[in-house]
């Protein structure tokens, strides 16, 4: 019997297909999370009260913020779950090594981020249609009701990289936590502690970080910032987990 030569990209492709099948739960929970977020959005995400002589106005603001926030949480949780020991083992009954396993995980997360971004953008229309047709409430006659093609494209573009970025953070935290059994407890503590310390040393530190990534108005620069940071986080994760043993 001769030795079967395999090439890594072929294995990555097979593992990716395997994971699409096995991790159908990622997409099921995405749907559940989005439906929950839509239900929350039904009540409006903000609002206020204006009053002047002769007229009082209570207004409700509808956004997709809920969907974005909850879907981000979904991305974070699933990225962490992918790195857990149990799920790591699931990937190894068949052919593969850490390298192919990591790459196929990253591909899965990228694919999930793209799908999540499409669904989130579409949910903006769902909210509009539901409020317009089923909520007995007058709407401000405002151009903000209508999303242009440019808005849709920009929303999808931003959200895809945003979710992928969140996945990279989750994957990184999950991988670091696997180094030592104490770390799952320590990592969140250290992360929060570091943020507090940085915030004390340098006021407005967190806002500056958020601004750096999310106030970027140039699409190309936004891409560079997001993808570079995600790549670094994934690269460190891959480096760590390639040294870790699999299957207990």
């Amino acid at each position: 019997m001769s030795l079967n030569r395999v090439n890594a990209s072929d294995i990555v492709k097979k593992q990716f297909q395997y994971k699409l099948k096995a991790y159908v739960g990622v997409f099921t929970s995405l749907v559940v999370v989005q439906i929950i977020a839509l239900i929350f959005s039904y009540g409006g995400t903000g609002g206020g009260f204006s009053s002047s002589n002769g007229i009082d106005v209570r207004y409700q603001t509808y956004t997709v913020d809920n969907v974005i926030v909850l879907t981000s949480l979904w991305a974070l949780i699933h990225a962490i779950i992918l790195t857990t020991k149990k799920d790591w083992q699931h990937a190894f009954p068949f052919v593969g090594n850490s390298w192919t396993n990591n790459l196929s995980n990253i591909l899965l997360l990228l694919f999930a981020s793209i799908i999540a971004a499409v669904l989130t953008v579409l949910s903006a229309f769902a909210i509009r249609v539901i409020i317009f047709h089923f909520v007995n409430e007058d709407l401000f006659r405002s151009y903000t009701f209508f999303l242009t093609a440019e808005n849709i494209l920009s929303g999808w573009y931003v959200l895809t990289f945003h979710f992928f970025f969140i996945c990279a953070i989750g994957y990184f935290l999950g991988t670091v936590s696997r180094i030592h059994p104490m770390l799952p407890i320590l990592v969140p503590v250290i992360m929060i502690g570091l943020l507090i310390v940085f915030e004390q040393i340098h006021q407005g530190f967190m806002i500056e970080i958020a601004t750096f990534y999310y106030e970027e108005t140039n699409p190309a620069l936004f891409f560079v910032k997001m993808v570079t940071t995600s790549t670094i986080l994934f690269a460190v994760s891959v480096f760590i987990s390639n040294r870790t043993e699999v299957r207990t």
Binding site: L3, N4, V6, I11, V95, N97
Partner: peptide, 12 residues
């Protein structure tokens, strides 16, 4: 260790 050829030709 983490070898693809071994992984493809050996099963545990």
């Amino acid at each position: 260790f983490q070898n693809l050829i071994v992984s493809a030709n050996a099963i545990y």
